[in-house]
Amino acid sequence: MSVQPKVGPTARMTADEFLVWAEGQPGRYELVDGEVFAMSPERVRHAETKLATYQALGASIRTANLPCRVLPDGVTVRIDASASFEPDALVYCGERLDPNATAVPEPVIIVEVLSPRTKHVDTGAKLLGYFRLPSLRHYLILDTERRTVIHHRRSTGDLIETRIATAGDLILDPPGLTVAVADLFAEP
């Protein structure tokens, strides 16, 4: 049985309805508390930072020889029945996902690059939502203007530790990656 989405992006949707609806739409969207939000066009600095991040994470995975994969934006992370986000990059480990999948069920690392319009969502609803996923170990928020990484890391129990880094290396363990902060950003 297939899930039929409600009519139009103004109707409230479940995550299942949203994934079916979004696949056939031009542009990019996210689902927050059952409401569909269009994603704005990106600035070049934002796009270049996403590319640099994708490349840095991929290189780190290859260096560490881990059974993990990095994906750029375009795939969805389902938070619950009423929220699905599209991060700027993510890492998952284990078996390769079905090439036709549109969602990643167990991300280990999620990256969001701040933009003026979505800053409050990335540091609020997404921070809370992503850490509801048991698989998530690291949430990196990249501030391109300050060339700063806000690294939220799951610790013991329900504790989330935060580190703000402008230089040096980020230790992303698990899964066992080391990434230089400078490598996450496009050249100035």
Rank of each mutant, 00 (worst) to 15 (best):
L170H: 09
P107Q: 04
C68S: 04
A59C: 00
S40L: 12
M39I: 12
Y54D: 05
P26N: 10
G34N: 06
L142M: 04
T162L: 14
T10Q: 10
A103Y: 08
L31C: 09
N100K: 09
I164L: 11
E23D: 14
I110G: 03
D122A: 11
H138R: 03
A22L: 03
L128P: 00
E48A: 12
P26S: 14
L127R: 15
A83V: 02
A64T: 01
I109P: 01
G176M: 02
T123D: 07
G58T: 00
W21K: 03
R69T: 09
I171L: 12
V111Y: 13
K50A: 13
V36N: 04
V44E: 15
V20N: 00
A47G: 14
T53W: 03
I109C: 06
D158F: 07
S84W: 01
F131W: 08
R78W: 03
L184C: 03
R163A: 11
A52K: 05
V70E: 02
T49M: 09
D16P: 01
I141M: 05
R12D: 08
Y139L: 08
S40Q: 14
V3A: 13
L127F: 15
T14H: 07
V77H: 01
Y54T: 12
D80S: 08
A38Y: 08
H46T: 12
A101E: 11
D73P: 03
K126A: 12
F37C: 00
A52Y: 05
L170S: 05
V179M: 08
A182H: 05
V75W: 11
F37L: 15
R45M: 13
D73M: 13
T10E: 13
R62Q: 12
T63M: 09
E35D: 11
A64Q: 07
A125V: 14
I160E: 07
S155E: 09
T63Q: 13
R117I: 14
A64M: 04
R62A: 11
L71N: 10
L140H: 07
V111F: 08
G27N: 12
C93N: 04
V77A: 08
R137N: 09
P5E: 07
V181Q: 04
E17Q: 12
P87S: 05
G34A: 06
E23K: 14
V75E: 10
P72Y: 07
Y54S: 07
E112K: 04
N100S: 06
V179T: 08
N65S: 14
T118D: 15
N65F: 01
I79M: 09
R147P: 02
R96H: 05
I109F: 00
K119I: 14
P41H: 11
P174L: 03
A180D: 12
T148Y: 02
P72W: 04
E145T: 07
Y92K: 06
L172P: 06
V179G: 02
I109H: 02
R62P: 01
L90P: 02
E86Y: 00
N100R: 11
A182E: 10
P188R: 13
V113H: 14
I164Q: 15
V181R: 10
L184W: 10
P5R: 04
A81L: 11
A125L: 13
H152Q: 05
A52S: 10
R45Y: 08
A59W: 00
L128D: 15
I109D: 01
H151P: 02
I150P: 00
P116K: 15
S60E: 10
Y139M: 05
R132Y: 00
M39K: 13
L66R: 03
G168M: 01
P105N: 04
V149G: 04
F185T: 00
T63V: 13
